[in-house]
Design a protein around this nucleic acid. Structure first.
Lengths: 338, 338
DNA sequence: TAATTTTATGCAATCGATTACCCAATATTA
DNA sequence: TAATATTGGGTAATCGATTGCATAAAATTA
């Protein structure tokens, strides 16, 4: 029906060749200012739009970037996406988002598909389940920039943008200690993942600083989230010496814990303090707003995108860049005694 | 570095032409079973991957679909995306997601960009701000299928998948009346949008059915969400005859209202019942779980994707399809008396 | 004025896959 | 057995933009 106008149409219109049109549109210095003006005029007059697909074929660059993450309906991840798009769209890149649902085999399929679709780069937060590095090595073998965010793998030739989880956890725990709590428990998810190891590390450091001995009974790894948080809290409260505070590595875990604590009649924050991690929006709306460590996700997305762009621009020279962002502790009612 | 293998490599390998390879890979009946087998073997041996960009150029189909929506970090929208991807990825389509942040000019830019990127279709939930139809007509002029979901525009030549908002609101309000509430207020957002008009309509129908006169003072349009919900509730409770229930067209509005009501000492659900709309996950986690109308977003996404596929398959014949999905009322503590 | 640059543009191949059209070899039919 | 049909596959153009190489015209230099 409506044929799109191509550079050939413009060429015919002006009695020049497509090559000249192409050069004029790309502001090639070999083309006279006069011709350029004519071409540009004709282009707007004929409503010319460059064919990105043809450019992609010629250049081998699709101008698409794959973003791979567990779920997009977590505030953290969707905010990261927002940061990535804000940085990449103005540069003419499109973002293809895929969700792994925390499954390794889904992640492998997705990466494969993205490579087949010849994305110019992959920005990924690995699934909890992922053990293999094979798919990542395939990415590297194809010379496609690979940037990890939040959850990374230590693979030479890749870059990463992560949060200083250690420091975030340290601050959260220290804050609980400053509130006077002395028996601080820690709820985590999966200690095979670096981020959770680091959160545990920061927790330990704060304890050590206050001369408190680390008690392994106070560390519980949850399976799922909210109900598991309740269960974990229950378990903790049934210890001979129950804790007086919880630093949870997730907000949903913190929420579950709070629900259990209220059920058993605990006063928060008077008797018991809780801090979560991620600063999910719901932490603010709760009747009892929950303190949480903010991960600055938009900045993380922007930074990951910038690293990708650097990688692209560095033609051949392989850049390996690891950026660590600083988290912020949002103190709310769940941990503010006074 | 690593050259990707093309059909020419396979052709050379087998001493045949690329045309034959192409036909063999596409299972063309003109190619003998023997040759097909050889080609397929060589393809896997050489690790051949079809070049989607080249195919796109030749066919004029990019195999990309644009999805445009206000925000991806709303559970409703991210679930719709999930539905779309589940339906489209197996068919070889990729989904490009863009957020309008409820801004009309952003929406116009995005649609323009998607057309430039030659997507094969656009699935969109229009921004609250959007008045113009110009960008939509551009889509139609390029013969690109345009499918609205949730928030639609009445434009000939387009399809839509929406929720029966009227019925959802009707059920929610009826449920409140069944609980014995007789002074049911309604909080809405923007009555220039069809979905909110319909929710108001369903609300009115339920009232009428119970012989209750519609009271315009009981309908409040909020600007933003949660704090506005509190304010609106305050205003309602200061009326000479305050309501005894609220049906809110948003969950955040319902949450804000509940917060205010608790502050002023109301007992929910004994003295006052509240129902929201969207069934955002937080409605379940709350200490006081909030009743809400579920929009079945995954199904909505799947349906929109299916409509797109029908449109694509129908070669030339323009399909105009309007699907209306049925919502479900999730009754929770906030409105369950007894 | 002749020789040499410079400037501005054309020519044609290329990226990888698809497909209309053509043709040789074999199979079928009269 | 000659004529026709079928099978299997090759040739070359095409999608739209880019770019190395070539070249005519204009400008500069000797």
């Amino acid at each position: 029906m409506k044929k799109k106008t191509t550079i050939y149409d413009i060429a015919k219109e002006l009695n020049i060749t497509a090559a000249t049109v192409s050069r004029a549109l790309n502001d090639n210095p070999r083309i006279s200012a006069e011709t350029k003006k004519l071409v540009l005029e004709a282009a707007t007059r004929l409503n010319y739009k460059q064919n990105r697909v043809a450019q992609a074929l010629k250049s081998g660059k699709s101008k698409n970037v794959g973003v791979v993450l567990p779920y997009i309906n977590r505030n953290f991840f969707s905010s990261v996406i927002r940061g990535i798009e804000e940085e990449l769209n103005p540069k003419g890149y499109y973002v293809i988002i895929s969700q792994t649902h925390e499954k390794e085999n889904k992640e492998i399929d997705i990466v494969q598909n993205l490579l087949d679709a010849q994305v110019d780069g992959i920005i990924i937060s690995v699934s909890r389940q992922t053990n293999s590095n094979k798919h990542f090595n395939q990415v590297l073998a194809k010379n496609v920039p690979l940037i990890f965010f939040d959850r990374k793998k230590e693979i030479p030739g890749t870059s990463s943008v992560t949060l200083d989880d250690f420091n975030g956890a340290y601050r959260a725990t220290k804050h609980l200690l400053e509130q006077g709590c002395r028996k601080v428990a820690h709820m985590t998810i999966d200690l095979s993942l670096l981020i959770y190891q680091n959160r545990l590390g920061g927790y330990k450091k704060a304890l050590a600083e206050y001369g408190i001995e680390f008690n392994p009974e106070y560390v519980i790894a949850l399976q799922s989230e909210i109900t598991a948080g309740k269960d974990a809290a229950k378990k903790l409260m049934e210890l001979p010496e129950p804790p007086d505070a919880i630093f949870s590595a997730t907000d949903l875990g913190a929420l579950g814990a709070i629900q259990h604590l209220k059920e058993v009649g605990m006063n928060i924050p008077e008797d018991f303090c809780v801090v979560g991690f991620s600063n999910e929006p719901f932490t603010q709306f709760m009747e009892l707003p929950i303190s949480s460590v903010d991960q600055n996700p938009v900045l993380m997305g922007k930074t990951a995108a910038k690293v990708f762009l650097e990688q692209i621009d560095s033609e051949g020279v392989k850049i390996e860049k690891n950026v660590v962002l600083d988290p912020t502790l949002e103190i709310r009612t769940s941990s503010q005694k006074k």
